[in-house]
Design a protein around this nucleic acid. Structure first.
Lengths: 121, 121
DNA sequence: GCAACACTCAACCAATCGGTTGACAATCTA
DNA sequence: TAGATTGTCAACCGATTGGTTGAGTGTTGC
């Protein structure tokens, strides 16, 4: 059977948006409150139009919302899609906690061995 | 001040790898145990070489490890980088729980109002 | 030994990405 | 009203992506 994948899911857009360090930095800036497009662009060695494209990518991924206020566009974080991404990742949580548990168990076992028999290696 | 971003971080590679539904499906397959490249490729309407490229992308993002066993390449999940991505996302957790808390508070307030005064709208 | 198998690699292709510049639209302010 | 400010849009560019095919490399089993 051949798996039929959808053309482009919201999760595709979210992860793709997060794959760019400029956009991740913009999200981080927005974690401190609303910012205009100009303010979001300012830290980067990039034209305003270039930064505007990144903002648009974040917006169409649903990661930010924009409110046009006069000639300024005020952007604010919308974390719902981030929550979706986190939920997708949480499915795999058992795989890394599992590893940590194994490591923990090994360390404990070593402790017991050194307590009762000393380190024999 | 102009922000200086690194050329390509591990997080870039991880999020980029996760942005493709084929690769996410491959990871899901690997959550059920080791798979060969051929087994990973089988569900998709795609050449083996094409699927092999996806496996390579997952590998260079550090999401899977490969053990060459004769003519087969056995792949298994490596969740450490996924944990990194989850940790990056967890910074924003307060933004979605915050919203849920506000919603929760609003609902509780409505409950109290209907209890003490009836629904006045 | 040889054919089938499992897979990678290189070359190619169209589409997308991340960036630019220049023109434009809307808004604010002097 | 004129000019500065804020931002988008369209066109363009080179690099990358996701896919293909064809050839090549080991490995396995008859």
């Amino acid at each position: 059977m051949v798996e039929q994948l959808p053309i482009s899911t919201p999760l595709d857009l979210v992860f793709h948006a997060l794959a760019d360090p400029t956009r991740r930095a913009m999200l981080h800036a927005l974690s401190n409150g609303e910012r205009t497009v100009g303010e979001l662009a300012e830290p980067f060695a990039m034209s305003l139009a270039g930064a505007s494209k990144h903002v648009k990518a974040l917006e169409s991924a649903g990661l930010i919302r924009r409110e046009v206020k006069g000639r300024q566009h005020l952007c604010r974080l919308d974390a719902a899609r981030l929550a979706d991404a986190a939920q997708w990742l949480s499915f795999y949580e058992r795989f890394w906690t599992e590893r940590l548990n194994v490591l923990d168990a090994l360390l404990r076992q070593e402790d017991v061995q050194s307590d009762t028999q000393g380190d024999q290696r």
